[in-house]
Design a protein around this nucleic acid. Structure first.
Lengths: 377, 377
DNA sequence: TAGTTTCGCGGAAACGTTTCCGCGCTGCTC
DNA sequence: GAGCAGCGCGGAAACGTTTCCGCGAAACTA
């Protein structure tokens, strides 16, 4: 093969050069990594020599002995989904701060692939897992628990396990309230996949808020779909082809909402005037779209970071045993896709309605807005 | 700490149960992993016992001895950029097929962070690196070569090193030709960061194609920016505030183009009519936008996959020594943001112009399109 | 049948760390 | 000044695998 490959210095060499035993060198370097100062002349010598030799411990060897890899495995449905990649960036950011590295894998939301990739990560001996693709009905989480593998859910939750999510239910309520206040009485919901807690909770929140205002939503206006633009396209066609199509559509995901808008445009509906559209997550392009998208902002980066911190706390045994189900607050961002009277120029001029964070089941007091004319069908 | 943590079976235990030496067990399993059938009764016994015990070799221990981790490190500016995450999915897909795992890290396009993360990956003893964030002027690549670290560039190229990119120059030419054919004579280019070969090549291609048609683009119409929507916003404001603003804008990146469209909307310009907009990459939402975006399609997933395959080939010493600079063909996708007469409904109805792949410097023969009226102002 | 090659097996070393254990030294206390 | 606690050091084992080496049996050749 190649001749290059400048061999990295080994601990044995450092120790020999400093005239100490390798155990001593190991201890000195470990202490220095914890921020402690060298405690003897020999220790200083070791540090200096290591620095000069550009020594980096071999993580493989270290973790073979210590049984700790300082790696976290992350499973997500799709990194090309900006929601998940943002969460992952948050995970990686917090993990790095805590001295952990992350390894991520796509599972395409397939239970088989989820198992395969988890097994692969576990054979790398990751210290724990962060799962962004929890399925409502899968026995996988229970199996992991039985095996004693530490893990934390993110984005989607599941009873009985640690999780960090947005307050999806309350977020859904915000949307229901908003659309009702605008005068809508017939609202279609594109609810995502039934196995994802995100879509379920957001849908439930919206339906509850509507019901409290005397608006009953027939079953057939709630449609399941993929969490991408194509899912939004397909669902929109089904909704708009009904005898009495909705005057507003809530897509539980911004990408889906973009598909909705694209399809409405194709159908020559004016977005926001003929049909109101609201999404969820406030991904960065939402405000940059030719018709800016109303949506519910959720703290995706923070969500990932919190999940990583929770997992590391578990690994360190710093926490109580009860499952921690953290729900991050959300806020409604109104833009022209639901209310054309809101002119949002550049960065400013947005209207936010904050939810009272994490307080499920209590109606949000959103300031009543003037009911708009019922949109032409 | 915990009592759970069902210990995984070790090779020693498997060997003992089968009544063979661990070296034998190791060989048998290695052979079976290569698809070879067991060659003796003892071998069959080992395989059966391993299967029952759900045995998975400890990757740490294996690579400590064998000096091969079967891991590839991937560095990208930002995974939240769908261009990079798509490339990464391609990398991971091909790597998995070849029996490699990938570890990815964000570098935020910062040279310091690039170094830090590369070092971290290397201390995990990854077998090689795939770099998606090559900087034009950085000495980093030469250093890696000097150290004998195998690597391949993706998305951005650099003289003298392996790379897999889109044929950015020809892609840029397609845009220049398209806009000239539409009758535009004053075209703004939002060129991305000067250190990225992508933006540079695309810009150069566009300028060349225009120049060949007698259109000279003043320097001040070429503006550098970040590769995101905000970059597009800022650059558009600068362009449109000029005494003689352009009638068309080429953003070398779709996200940037979305920022352009958002800003044009704020300025009350009609996209495609007042000002034509063209992006680059054809990310999936381009066609779903309320005003569908004209853009140049590049094979991002394939690009990542090719990069992974090239790196693995290098690792296996299967290739010649000369640097391989692969350029994947691109094609123009015309939509309403540059040509409102193209009505693209749903999935169909798009017009594609293919580039002759990889043939730099030769004018593309695009069918001449009727010149449109010069846009207002 | 004897000699030679082939082949698979077992033993043991090796990979680069961390951690356990025992020992000697320092410094304190009485 | 003697005894004892504390501390840091060196030696060595351990982590779980792969790979080298030598040996014996089987298979083939002459």
């Amino acid at each position: 093969m190649e001749e290059g490959s400048a061999r990295r210095a080994t601990l044995r060499e450092i120790a020999a050069a400093a005239g100490v035993a390798v155990s001593t060198a190991s201890r000195v370097l470990a202490r220095s990594r914890q921020g402690l100062p060298p405690s003897s002349a020999a220790a200083e010598r070791v540090l200096e020599i290591a620095r000069q030799a550009n020594y980096e411990p071999d993580a493989q060897a270290a973790s073979l002995r210590s049984k700790q890899t300082h790696m976290l495995g992350v499973l997500v449905p799709h990194l090309t989904d900006v929601v998940l990649s943002t969460i992952y960036e948050g995970i990686d950011h917090a993990a790095t701060e805590l001295g952990y590295q992350t390894v991520v894998a796509n599972t395409l939301d397939s239970p088989d692939e989820q198992r395969r990739r988890a097994e692969l990560l576990l054979s790398r001996r990751v210290d724990g897992l962060i799962l962004g693709d929890a399925h409502a009905d899968s026995p996988f989480l229970a199996e992991l628990t039985a095996r004693g593998t530490p893990f934390v859910l993110v984005s989607r939750t599941h009873d009985g396990f640690d999780s960090v999510t947005a307050d999806d239910y309350t977020g859904g309520r915000l949307v229901g309230t908003h659309l009702a206040d605008l005068g809508h009485r017939r609202i279609g919901i594109i609810a995502g996949q039934p196995y994802a807690s995100t879509g379920r909770e957001r849908t439930r929140g919206c339906l509850d808020a509507l019901a409290e205002r005397g608006i009953d939503t027939p079953r057939d206006l709630v449609i399941h779909s993929n969490f991408d633009a194509d899912g939004g396209r397909a669902a929109t066609l089904r909704l708009m082809r009904k005898k009495r199509p909705p005057t507003a559509i809530f897509a539980v995901n911004d990408m889906t909402a973009i598909g909705v808008m694209g399809t409405l445009r194709d159908l020559e509906c004016k977005i926001g005037t003929d049909v109101a559209v609201v999404g969820f997550n406030d991904i960065s392009i939402a405000r940059d779209l030719p018709v800016p998208l109303s949506t519910v902002r959720s703290a995706l980066h923070q969500m990932g970071a919190e999940a990583a911190r929770l997992l590391v706390a578990r690994l360190r045994g710093e926490t109580s045993d009860a499952p921690s189900q953290r729900r991050l607050p959300t806020e409604l961002v109104v833009r022209e896709s639901s209310d054309p009277t809101v002119r949002t120029r550049g960065k400013s001029g947005r209207i936010l309605k904050k939810a009272s964070p994490g307080h499920n089941g209590v109606p949000i007091q959103a300031p009543a807005r003037r009911p708009t004319r019922r949109p032409a069908q």
